[in-house]
Design a protein around this nucleic acid. Structure first.
Length: 574
RNA sequence: UGUCCGAUGGUGUAAUUGGCAACACGUCUGAUUUUGGUUCAGAAGAGUCCAGGUUCGAGCCCUGGUCGGACAGCCA
């Protein structure tokens, strides 16, 4: 899918200065050396055991972006070698999320499980080479023989079984003659290797589990290390990009590959980059799953979740996520990106595109006493000052309106540019009003404001009064025309910069108790009546909001606050 | 006292045959503004982990340290 990136067509004389990230440098070097016939083929290989999150988005943009840049292709491959953790629900959500982000993989999605036959054959081949053996020991024994990072391991007593016996045992494993954990197939490498992953790593384990695609055909399943590189090889992947924690697996990746590789074939190369960390956010699938299972959030696509489906439901655009991924870059050092940068890409995109509308979240009734009771009129308002082509629209105005409670203060400080007793303010696109009287209930709560308006001050009328400068401009909505809506005001899920960075505390200790506030008697302008699910708006002076794609129904409008507008006023007055 | 990897403003990322540290976010001014938004103009903020070395010249190269991360699942 197109990313709308201007092609970096470098015309002579006009040096395109775009610098390369380290992966692009590697690729250009490979291209220069005619490696793999000049082909660039990447893949995005999630395990279908959860929903994709913003960290995956970085990887998706990277892998697909690389292929786009170098006229290559990208596969979507599900790394489904562990039937205990994987589900079709996740497969479906992953496909949807990748597409929504704006990318289309080459051909049909691939599955590591498609290669189980081939992988089995290769395992047999490696046994025949004398480089793999069946170990009958229990898991804890094998583990204790592994040694430690600073201490060599010891060899299994089964390490030197004959090839024939290994072949026979492995076949029996496959035929289901053993229970789970009874035997494993191991590569015969080096129990004294300084790299733990090379100490006779397990290639196959017995799992009597139904697989979401192969059903009960198999009861032995390959481990990640034995499956991944070979899957890359089968698919003709040239650059296998993964995160840093696999760096130490690379010698093993290459070891397996070298034992099945045929000269002349494309040989995949593993390249590792630093995964994304975001401030105020957790990225671990395990922890995200915990939030879902404990109902701390409302599902994987809760708008507070960093999942792609959560961000989507929150009101993020895929463009803003792609832009974000491009902005943060790719490198090998650990990093923590400030969420403010994500929010910046979002606002930047939404600012250009979204329709400005009037919505009052916490309504305060305001009566314009000198406006005739039976009168109403339409005022004209621009749809987006950033984009004239979006035109204007008409909005009803009448004697009783609602304004935001925050826009009135009885004892206002000097810098308060909003409404206060005896002060003037402009109602956006309408008139200048002056506050004459404050009505309160018996408990002293302000229930209503009485104002007068200047009939000559109507916006756009051209009169002197219409050009008068007043300090503040308020958004409003006509009381009798406004429609009701529920607004879900979301804030960050965690109140701590690094919720999972505390040694002795659980990440759940840092949940922000105000991450969701439901406002149920909001008033929005009548034009929003038939707003489509997922449509995005700027609520004038408040922020960006979208119609909830799951819960909003005609007649029961529900908006999610995507992100507030930047606010230098409340920041100063904290 | 292992192996692999990393180290540049508050945060990210650049600096591509070694040439006197750039961009973005954030922060702070000021201007414009019928959104306390946007836009515009400007400012502050690092001398590149440390110590040596090579060189006319080092963030880039060499040596030795320091600090941080990953690795001891029949997870991926």
């Amino acid at each position: 899918m197109s990313e709308n990136k201007e092609t970096p067509a470098r015309t002579a004389g006009e040096e395109e200065k775009k610098s390369l990230n380290f992966i692009e440098s590697i690729i250009e070097e490979d291209l220069k050396n005619k490696k793999n016939n000049g082909i660039v083929y990447t893949r995005f290989p999630p395990e279908p055991n959860g929903y994709l999150h913003i960290g995956h988005a970085k990887s998706i943009c990277l892998n697909f972006g690389l292929a786009q840049r170098y006229n290559g292709k990208t596969n979507l491959r599900f790394d489904d070698t562990n039937p205990a953790k994987e589900e079709v629900e996740y497969v479906d959500s992953i496909k949807e999320d990748v597409n929504w982000l704006g990318f289309q993989w080459e051909g049909e999605p691939h599955f590591a499980s498609d290669y189980f036959d081939q992988l089995y054959e290769w395992a047999v081949k490696i046994i025949k080479q004398g480089n793999a053996y069946v170990d009958d020991q229990a898991s804890d024994v094998i583990s204790s023989q592994k040694g430690t990072p600073t201490q060599a391991g010891i060899e299994s007593p089964y390490r030197n079984r004959s090839i024939e016996e290994n072949l026979e045992q492995f076949e029996k494993m496959r035929n289901g003659e053993f229970a789970e954990g009874e035997k494993v197939l191991r590569a015969k490498i080096d129990m004294a290797s300084p790299n733990m992953h090379m100490r006779d790593p397990i290639m196959y384990r017995i799992l009597h589990k139904e697989h979401h695609r192969t059903g009960d055909k198999w009861c032995i399943y390959p481990m990640y290390d034995f499956a991944h590189g070979q899957s890359d090889y089968i698919e003709g992947i040239t650059h296998s990009v993964c995160t840093l924690e696999f760096e130490i697996h690379r010698p093993l990746y290459e070891w397996f590959l070298n034992h099945v590789y045929t000269e002349g074939d494309i040989k995949p190369r593993q390249i590792e980059f630093a995964r994304l960390n975001l401030s105020y956010t957790i990225m671990s699938k395990r922890k995200l799953l915990e939030l879902v299972e404990k109902n701390i959030v409302n599902g994987w696509d809760d708008p507070r979740m960093p999942t792609i489906s959560g961000l989507r439901r929150r009101g993020f655009t895929s463009e803003s996520i792609r832009k974000f991924a491009e902005t943060i870059g790719v490198a090998k050092r650990d990093n923590v990106i400030d969420v403010a940068l994500l929010e910046h890409s979002l606002r930047d995109d939404l600012n250009k595109k979204s329709l400005r509308v009037m919505a009052v979240l916490n309504p305060l009734k305001l009566v314009i006493t000198n406006y005739p009771e039976d009168q109403e009129e339409f005022v004209t308002i621009e749809n987006n000052p950033e984009d004239e082509s979006m035109g204007t629209r008409e909005m009803p105005f009448s004697r009783e309106i609602f304004i935001e409670q925050d826009d009135f203060m009885e004892d206002a400080p000097k810098k308060f540019f909003r409404l206060a007793p005896d002060k003037e303010v402009r109602l956006k696109a309408a008139y200048i009003i002056k506050c004459e009287e404050v009505i309160k209930d018996s408990e002293g709560n302000i229930t209503e404001l009485r104002c007068t308006y200047d009939p000559d001050s109507r916006s756009g009328s051209g009169t002197e009064a219409s050009k008068r400068k007043v300090k503040g401009t308020l958004h409003w909505v006509s009381a009798k025309h406004a429609i009701d809506a529920e607004v879900r005001v979301y804030d960050r899920l965690f109140s701590d910069e690094a919720p999972d960075g505390h040694k002795d505390k659980d990440f759940k200790d840092f949940l922000n108790p105000e991450s969701l506030k439901i406002l149920s008697n909001c008033k929005v302008e009548p034009g929003l009546k038939d707003a489509e699910p997922e449509s995005k708006y700027q609520f004038q002076r408040l922020g960006y909001f979208c119609v909830d794609r799951r819960d909003s129904k005609p007649g029961n409008l529900i908006f999610n606050r995507t992100v507030p507008l930047k606010d230098s006023w409340s920041k100063k007055n904290k």
